[in-house]
């Protein structure tokens, strides 16, 4: 067992536990995007950053890949952490505004502006599909290719893979292409619909078909209360 301090609370967890697992166990929420319980942690999205250490030695680490150490001091929601998290969301919005998951994260974390060059990428390189394919589907049909600006995910040589069984696991888990925001092409990076109550689903007639992952969904609560 390892003893460490989590937001000022003395806690004890089993050796080998990551900070994220421990924090969730003790009820401290840490947002994640590229993390999935069924897959190995990858630390790609940096959304789960927490602050460890004290004073000038304090630093930000990704909690999904960092294993707890004896006497570690962890803060999951310090000012620095919140600021870094907001920046990560802002950058994610800049590259992939059509993702519902990212829009919901932006709403939930009160991100109200996006100051970077707007792009409409279909991939945020979180690696969820690559890990899904390898670890759960045992296929290894897709993987990362090239590097830097040209880094992409796909099959070798961009031809149909012999390993691929068309299971669809990669599409199922993808946060960028799985759920499109109801605003298919948001004019502005931040949809904010869910947060600002003027929810797109309210204005449309059959909002029952739409998926809203806001917890709790503001619009649904209003409608429920009106009934």
């Amino acid at each position: 067992m390892v003893k460490f301090t989590l937001n000022g609370l003395e806690v004890e967890v089993e050796e080998g536990t990551t900070i994220l697992e421990a924090a969730r166990f003790f009820g401290f929420p840490i947002p994640t995007l590229c993390y999935n319980e069924a897959l190995s942690p990858y630390g790609a999205c940096r959304l789960c950053v927490v602050e460890i250490g004290e004073g000038p030695k304090a630093k930000l680490v990704s909690s999904c890949t960092y294993r707890v150490e004896e006497g570690l001091k962890v803060r999951t929601a310090s000012e620095r952490v919140i600021k870094a998290r907001k920046m990560v969301i802002e950058l994610l919005l800049a590259s992939c505004p059509q993702s519902k998951i990212i829009q919901d994260l932006a709403s939930a974390h009160d991100v109200r502006r996006q100051r970077f060059k707007q792009e409409y990428e279909d991939c945020i390189l979180c690696g969820l599909c690559v890990r899904m394919c390898e670890e759960q589907m045992m296929a290894k049909a897709i993987g990362f290719r090239e590097r830097g600006e040209r880094r992409s995910i796909g099959t070798p040589f961009d031809i149909k893979s012999e390993e691929c069984r068309l299971c669809g696991g990669c599409i199922y888990i993808c946060p960028a292409c799985q759920l499109r925001c109801t605003y298919t092409e948001p004019e502005e990076a931040i949809c904010g619909g869910c947060a600002n109550i003027s929810v797109p689903c309210v204005e449309k007639e059959q909002f029952d078909d739409m998926m809203c992952y806001m917890e709790p969904c503001v619009a649904c609560e209003i409608i429920d209360s009106e009934k």
Partner: peptide, 12 residues
């Protein structure tokens, strides 16, 4: 090594 790994390293 799977083809994905080999191709990944070769293009990296």
């Amino acid at each position: 090594y799977s083809l994905v790994d080999v191709y990944g390293a070769a293009t990296f």
